[in-house]
Design a binder for these strands. Sequence first.
DNA 1: TACAATCCTGACCGTGACAGTCGGAATTTC
DNA 2: GAAATTCCGACTGTCACGGTCAGGATTGTA
Lengths: 167, 167
Amino acid sequence: MRVSSKAHYGLRMMTELAKAYGGGPMSLAEVARVEGLPLAYLEQLAGALRRGGLVESTRGVHGGYVLKRPPAEISVLDVVALVDGEVAPVECVAHGYETGSCMREGECASRPLWQRLKQSIDSVLSATTLEELVADHSLVDAFAPEPEPRTADAAPATPTEHEVINV
Amino acid sequence: MRVSSKAHYGLRMMTELAKAYGGGPMSLAEVARVEGLPLAYLEQLAGALRRGGLVESTRGVHGGYVLKRPPAEISVLDVVALVDGEVAPVECVAHGYETGSCMREGECASRPLWQRLKQSIDSVLSATTLEELVADHSLVDAFAPEPEPRTADAAPATPTEHEVINV
DNA sequence: TACAATCCTGACCGTGACAGTCGGAATTTC
DNA sequence: GAAATTCCGACTGTCACGGTCAGGATTGTA
């Protein structure tokens, strides 16, 4: 139940491109420098994002990458799905699943659960756009130098935010 | 973004124990037979569940495992967390995370997102108990001998179930 | 025209987690 | 004592992940 750092890197790259949106293309070398990520690795991820239609590339001296759609129209899910493959907690709720290939299908007690889980994850990830990410970021820069010290030691669970699921 | 089959196995085992709840202990050999899982592997998982306080074991000829709490009071999250380790999409939102060990902390644009995601996952997983799992299951057994033949060829996605998220 | 900056591709590789096995010890019942 | 069980540690094979490398293709600039 982890987000791969591949996806994480992809997201950071896309965030940079989102910041640069409107201007000229941004080179991977620049992204790698700013974010402190290995260039050669970014090239792979960028390829996936391009093939997926999220970015456009131009070669040559002042080349680089540009978002194909405005940041507000690219969700985190779009990015993660492209670099990481489809997000599905278990094979039988994946997109291309063929009925019957699991056996246990009739007796499987937990499939509805996994479907709920996938729904929930998809919902959260598709509700956040690149625009919001860069917006949050500048916000964090502006305010909140310290992240609000808790009174007592932090409680492990946070049942107070249960309604967060109704996005 | 997958549930390991470790967690899946653990859940299947716990479901069996939930069915057997109220009677005597159930042996792993029995679980392995019924669920078609490798015994030696189950032993590892059972150990984790026992150390985590979810089950109780008795050795010897009629020994086996028993749930320590009624199925209605054990959530899927309890099980997954024990066999799989804490469920956190990314390190910096994990339970034992120490502030400052990430660097990028100030500039990190996506941490709130991961926190939302974790919340969402936790919420779904802790909302389902073992009791519900076995209940769903018997329901499936009782009705629906055939999984309702679709009229046309099955549609790949199921956008009709979007409201499934509001559980 | 040469060169430098880019994208682009495929191959390669080390490490670690996962899934699973094995052998044997300890405990209990019959 | 024998059989059924839990318990434990060590071992292993496979595979995805994270990352590197070498080189080719394309394009702007001097």
